[in-house]
Write a protein that binds this DNA or RNA. Structure first.
Lengths: 336, 336
DNA sequence: AAAGCAAATGTCCACGCTGTCTGACTCTGT
DNA sequence: ACAGAGTCAGACAGCGTGGACATTTGCTTT
């Protein structure tokens, strides 16, 4: 089974006894071609397994492709996966294909990866910034390529962006706890996603300050050591002297660590996570939730809109979050 | 901010006072260019924000891209997301970019989507077949494009494939239950992924036959109605007359439905799911597990290997599964 | 039947890049 | 001083397609 060479328009034209331009017309669906000719061309094409060369087509059409790149740090995170799903769906609805690339959470590789994608003439770039500085994209932006910063703002670059209402969401969660009388509220997270965690931490502090708690630092656990499990951090908090009566988590990793510890704990400890997850409902875990799929769609929509109007002002969109009450966050503090 | 036109090699050459071929040499890293010239070219390129056009380059080089397509039915399923992550990682390690497309679980759109990707001259195609027949890909296969069928075998097409050991995995799970004395074992799943569920069902029946149970049909719940939740199916089983003493699930949806029902159930009901999930460990849920990320890597590796050796015999790879005991599957049947 | 016109098909070339080939220049050894 | 080797840069063509324009065909109109 030697692989036969790929047929071109010219090959099809020769077999069908027409000019290559006619073959072009048949496959591009442009211009008038008689039914007889069309049939002859199609049958010749089929025989030769001809498929138009999209590369050549795109080149001829001015280097315009129908792919849009989405660059993220780490595909393994289910949250980003949902976002990617939303992006893909929205793009596909407009006839675009998603080129998915990862930077392996390495700031150094971000520019390399992005550069390779831009060379392939993607129509737009959706990026979850991992490096601190995206000024290297400014040239491309000026050339008219829409650049959308996702989940965190881009550094040193004018770009459209979509982020969560991190601060407000967390503040709202903490307020729901202080309203029940909680004052000793711990915050756990691993700050791998710097920006979001910083915002959520700020929201946590803000809500505590509102009720006069200013020494929250002693309840904050921001370890980033992957060797230390979230579970052990929660245990450390609760088994130490003066344990908190409530815990909020800055991300899902914290929630997963807290769940096994908090079950059947006496006295019960209130808990609210950040990021919803499938079993949260079944387990009665309150969280700050949002629609990750819609998040992705919004990012994609921004790219499409900028494609349609390249000179519009840049836009910063915030995705709503809300506290979803499922029981774990409605536990009262133990009576003094 | 009018968008300036994109510079080409010729523009850079003009500004640098060299020929376009020299610019090509600088950016392709081929041939000898003196340090002085190189510097002049690079500075001119920077001034014009020049970036080589990958489309033109690929066309010139014989229509060979560095993208590999992965087509799946539905991105929302976290299992496929893990697989995609594995694919991406393995491809990136070899310098390829993943083009991700979905068919929205619609058999009709599969060929359309695949066709568009092949037109873009992807180097290889990884496909989770959703239609029953992939014979339309035979021509492309003969042209030398590696085609890898993922998670289910392709229909009417010679192709490499990677699938799970569905049947053996499920049989092993059921055997671990029969070994404890269970005989009334229910099987729940929604057969949206026909092939895998059929295999798992076969494994379930096989293991039951081994201990003389032949009337398993009354314990099988294969509803595909999305309006009927897995949870209500489990409830229906347990609250009916003659309830099962153990339940196995054909997929994660079944597990998620079973978890809230089985908690604190008296007498306790044994349960083993299929597909691992992050909280399974914390919740003590036994499952038939496997490495989804590695699954994706294997699929990608298969594509890369076939790219290197297009005429090798087609290969069918099976990914190992194993029962992970965490407590829920080790519950004894109630004494008669 | 001649003129007029739309439909159908063809010719030529450019999109941006690189492979091949050729030519100009620099350096070495005798 | 000159041949031979080595280094560097340019001219040209063509990858497969589609746009601009030219040409032919078939059919209507008076």
């Amino acid at each position: 089974m030697s692989t036969l060479p790929r047929a071109t328009q010219a090959d099809v034209a020769r077999l069908a006894g027409v000019s290559s331009k006619t073959v072009s017309r048949v496959f591009a669906g442009t211009g008038d071609v008689s039914a007889t000719t069309q049939e002859r061309v199609l049958s010749a094409a089929k025989r030769l397994r001809f498929r138009p060369n999209g590369l050549a087509r795109n080149l001829r059409r001015g280097g315009v492709t129908n792919t849009i790149a989405f660059v993220m740090g780490d595909l393994k995170n289910p949250f980003y996966f949902q976002v990617a799903a939303g992006v893909e769906r929205e793009l596909a609805a407009s006839g675009f294909t998603m080129l998915l690339a990862t930077t392996d959470d390495s700031p150094a590789s971000e520019e390399v990866v992005v550069d390779a994608l831009l060379s392939q003439r993607v129509r737009a770039l959706l990026l979850i910034p991992i490096a601190d500085d995206q000024s290297y994209l400014d040239g491309e932006r000026q050339l008219g390529t829409p650049i959308i910063s996702v989940d965190r703002p881009a550094g040193n670059l004018v770009a459209d962006s979509v982020v969560l209402r991190n601060r407000q969401g967390m503040a709202e969660a903490v307020r729901s706890l202080t309203a029940l009388g909680h004052r000793k509220i711990a915050f756990i997270s691993n700050p791998s996603a710097m920006y979001t965690q910083r915002e959520r931490l700020a929201g946590y502090r803000e809500a505590l300050r509102e009720v006069g708690v200013t020494d929250s630092a002693r309840w904050e656990r921001l370890d980033d050591d992957p060797a230390v499990s979230a579970e052990s951090i929660v245990r450390g908090l609760l088994d130490g002297g003066d344990p908190p009566t409530a815990i909020v988590a800055g991300n899902n990793r914290g929630s997963h660590g807290a769940i096994p510890v908090l079950r059947d704990r006496m006295p019960p400890v209130a808990f609210i996570g950040f990021d919803d997850f499938e079993l949260a409902d079944a387990l009665g875990i309150s969280v700050v939730g949002y629609d990750a799929f819609e998040f992705g769609r919004t990012a994609a929509r921004l790219a499409l809109e900028r494609l349609a109007d390249p000179v519009a002002f840049s836009r910063q969109v915030e995705i709503a979050t809300r506290v979803i009450h499922r029981g774990s966050g409605e536990i009262l503090p133990p009576a003094q």
